[in-house]
Amino acid sequence: MKKLRGTPSARYIVKNLVVLAGVFSVFVLLVKANTGYDLLFNKLLQERAAQQQYEDLSYDDRREIKLGYNFTYLQLLRSRTPETAVILMPPDSVFRKPDGEHAFIDYWITNRGWASYFVYPRRLVYSDDLGAGSSHLRPTHVAIVHYWGYDKLAYPVDKKYPYDVMPF
């Protein structure tokens, strides 16, 4: 014989609704009383809006939104060099100038490990390290940052851009 559960009584349904209302009230109270849940609730709404706003963007474009122009520049190095490239980077001082023209990318890019992640398997060699003799890698390209780097090339360049990457 098949076992069936009887139809729920009105009383059972009301009791269920009362417990549901109680649980719901606890969570509303928590969201209102605790800054953490309030932030989380707002984050859920913001996240939904952000995902709708950026859903057509590629993964790299989304990363640019999170990481800014540092990533844009490193992506330029990545897209314009072969995987085996060893790229000469400017001295840290070039990235640390406080004027507006250098605000395009910031000193985060001087963090060797962090910056290398975005161009890997290409290698970054910083001029400061070459001077200190701590790197054995021979650069194949030079990173142009605010016109720094053109003087390293043994050939003339007709059209110069402030940010670029050139082969030696």
Binding site: K3, L4, R5, G6, P8, S9, R11, Y12, K15, V19
Partner: peptide
Amino acid sequence: LATDKPPVV
């Protein structure tokens, strides 16, 4: 809740 739970028939 269990006191008003519909019985199994």
